[in-house]
C-alpha cells in the first residue's frame, strides 16, 4: 500500500464544512458576474469541462481509480445528444427471417430529453466498461480504461450516425421545456451554469454520504475495506457508473454550447486533458477540477495560434505537477491555509 507521502491524494485536515461553503458561495458569485467581463461561449465551454473534470475527480480523488479513458463517456454522450437533437432517429435491429431495423423515433428531440437520454447512454457505457475494468487493479485499471476508450473511438470513426471526420453539425439549440430559447446566449449561459452546479452539488453530496465514506475507505486501503465486509467491487462499479453519467452530462451539454460533436471529444488526448485539469487543480479536492479546467481551457484559448506548443506546455504541466506540486493548485492553497476545499 502507498505510504503517507506517496498517496494519490493527501487528505487535508478537516475543519468543518465552513471553508467549503464560503468557497462555494464565492464560486457561484464569480460565475454569475463573469459573463459581464468574459466572452460567454468560452465560459460555457469551460463549465462543461469543469463538470467533466469533477466527474473524473470523483473516481481518482475519492476512490483512487485512475480512468484513462473518460473521453469515452464525455464524447459519446456528446454524440448521443447531438444526434438526438438534430436527427433523433433511434433504430434497433431485430430478426424476422432477415435482419430488419425497427425505427422507434424519427424526429428531432427537445434538448432536455436529448440530454437525459445521452446521460443514460453514458451511464450504460460506464456500467459496461466499469464491469470489465474493475477486474484488475491499479496500473492495469488505467490501461484497460484507455484501451476500451480507444476501441470506442474506432467505433465512433466507423459508425454511420457520428458523421466520421465531419462530426455532427450544426446542432440546433431549441427551446428548453418549450419555454426558454437556448439560442439566446444569456439563457444558454444560465442553463449551463445551473446544470454545472447541479452536477457539482450531486458529487459533493455523494462524497459526504456514507457511500462516499466507503469509497474513501477503498481508496485508503482496499484490502481492509474488503475484510470489514464491504463488497468493494460493487462500490467501485456504482462510483464508476455515476462518474460516467456525470461526465456524460457534461458531454451532452457541450454540443448545445459549441453546436457540434466531433471526434476530438472521444480521442485519447481528451482523456489525457481531463486528467491534466484535475491533476493541476488538485486531485481529491472539491474545487480543484473547476480551477484546473478553467486554467487549461484559458491556456488553450490564448495559445491556440502557437500550434503544437499547447501540447508541449500541457506535457510540461504534467511533469511539473507530478514532480513539484502533487496537491495541485487548490490542494496547495488548502494545505497552506489549513482548510478544506
Amino acid at each position: 500500500m502507498a505510504q503517507a507521502t506517496g498517496q494519490l491524494t493527501a487528505p487535508a485536515e478537516a475543519h468543518g464544512h465552513k471553508s467549503e461553503l464560503i468557497a462555494f458561495v464565492v464560486m457561484v458569485a464569480v460565475l454569475a458576474i463573469l459573463p459581464a467581463f468574459v466572452y460567454p461561449p468560452f465560459l460555457m465551454k469551460a463549465l462543461c469541462f469543469a463538470l467533466f473534470a469533477c466527474a473524473f475527480n470523483l473516481l481518482i480523488g475519492y476512490v483512487g481509480l485512475l480512468s484513462f479513458g473518460h473521453a469515452l463517456y464525455f464524447g459519446w454522450a456528446s454524440y448521443f445528444a447531438a444526434h438526438l437533437a438534430k436527427v433523433g432517429k433511434i433504430s434497433i435491429p431485430y430478426w424476422a427471417g432477415s435482419w430488419q431495423w425497427l425505427t422507434i423515433t424519427n424526429s428531432p428531440m427537445v434538448p432536455e430529453l436529448a440530454i437525459f437520454l445521452a446521460v443514460m447512454g453514458a451511464a450504460v457505457l460506464g456500467f459496461v466498461a466499469g464491469s470489465i475494468a474493475i477486474r484488475r487493479q491499479g496500473i492495469y485499471f488505467a490501461m484497460i480504461t484507455l484501451a476500451l476508450a480507444q476501441m470506442m473511438y474506432f467505433f465512433a470513426v466507423q459508425a454511420p450516425f457520428t458523421g466520421g471526420e465531419d462530426g455532427i453539425q450544426p446542432v440546433p439549440r431549441g427551446y428548453l421545456f418549450g419555454l426558454f430559447n437556448l439560442a439566446n446566449e444569456r439563457v444558454m449561459y444560465v442553463f449551463v451554469m445551473v446544470m454545472f452546479l447541479l452536477g457539482f452539488l450531486l458529487i459533493y453530496r455523494v462524497i459526504h454520504s456514507p457511500f462516499g465514506e466507503v469509497l474513501k475507505a477503498i481508496r485508503e486501503n482496499e484490502q481492509r475495506a474488503i475484510s470489514l465486509g464491504y463488497k468493494t467491487d460493487k462500490y467501485k462499479l456504482v462510483a464508476f457508473t455515476l462518474s460516467a453519467a456525470i461526465a456524460g452530462l457534461a458531454g451532452a451539454i457541450k454540443p448545445f454550447v459549441v453546436q457540434n460533436a466531433s471526434l476530438t471529444d472521444v480521442h485519447w488526448s481528451m482523456s489525457g486533458e481531463v486528467v491534466l485539469m484535475t491533476l493541476l487543480g488538485g486531485l481529491g479536492t472539491i474545487f480543484g477540477p473547476v480551477i484546473g479546467a478553467f486554467t487549461i481551457i484559458a491556456m488553450q484559448n490564448y495559445l491556440a495560434s502557437f500550434g503544437q506548443w499547447v501540447t508541449i506546455i500541457q506535457g510540461g504541466i504534467f511533469v511539473a505537477c507530478v514532480l513539484l506540486f502533487r496537491r495541485g493548485i487548490v490542494g496547495e492553497i488548502a494545505n497552506l491555509l489549513r482548510i478544506r476545499l
Partner: peptide, 17 residues
C-alpha cells in the same frame, strides 16, 4: 516511493512533450 500512477502520469507528460 510514490503511487505507481504518478509514473504513468509523468511519462504521459513526457510523451506529450
Amino acid at each position: 516511493k510514490l503511487d505507481h500512477l504518478y509514473g504513468l502520469l509523468l511519462t504521459f507528460g513526457l510523451a506529450l512533450i
